[in-house]
Amino acid sequence: MSLLQVTNLTKKFGKFTALDGVNLEVNSGEIFGFIGPNGAGKSTTIRVLLGILKATEGEVKIFGKDAWNDAVEIHKRVAYVPGDVNLWPNLTGGEVIDLFVKLRGGNNKSKREELIKKFDLDPTKKCRTYSKGNRQKVALIAAFSSDADLYILDEPTSGLDPLMEKIFQECVIEVKKEGKSVLLSSHILSEVEKLCDRVGIIREGRIIESGSLTELRHLTRTQMLVQTKEPVNLKELKGIHEIEETEQGLSFQVDTEELDNAIKHISQFGVLKLESSPPTLEDLFMRHYEGTEKAHDTGVGGGK
């Protein structure tokens, strides 16, 4: 059952088209990874989902309700963590958490304390003194102490250290176990790979690829390292890339659909050693951006 459905969403800021016919679907009980470089339109999409921006065209439904018109009703069941957490400098973290939980409705005091302990946050400090990571912790604690049905998380770990990242992942897995859904926008591909059931890749305002990780893997290449008795000639084969002679042997990448042919071919030369690494999301991601200009910076994209 689909919990969130975006159909043909277009968002324009004046003449600039930020989102161009985006289609997305998040099903009940799944974790959906939303990946793309800065300025691709991740945050813009999420802000439309939350009814903070108004769609120029297209339909956005959450829980079967319209994201713009029924925003308040929808938000009672949504927990959101923005990418850039700006807090009020003269309130304490504890005060902000309480305020956020209260504004969404519902209350879970024991969960709050547990999470504050887990994330190792001092709630008595003013937000002014918090680092980026600590501000993110405040938003995460507020989000996970509420009983939501859908969690919308916009690059929630960009300021967290690896230890806290792990705790964050535990929290996500826990809500998944409870049958909740998560929309996770991220830069950190290993995280998306570990957590997500399905991913959508956005680039320049369009979804260029979406599906389960297994579905997408056919688009990727496998990294191979072989040592053979006789020198191998790979030149005539299709789908072989980045051939390189190394001390350990011959290193190359092979398209997933040509894997069978490649192995058959190599086996004729007397294989001494064969190492392969599975296609990672990293490769998948990089392949989609090959040839395009490099992503500008590593911060969270606030681009319109």
Partner: peptide, 14 residues
């Protein structure tokens, strides 16, 4: 301008 309305509008506040 400081991006702090999102916190409220992203919750059940009209």
């Amino acid at each position: 301008k400081k991006g702090r309305l999102d916190h409220l509008l992203g919750r059940a506040v009209s």
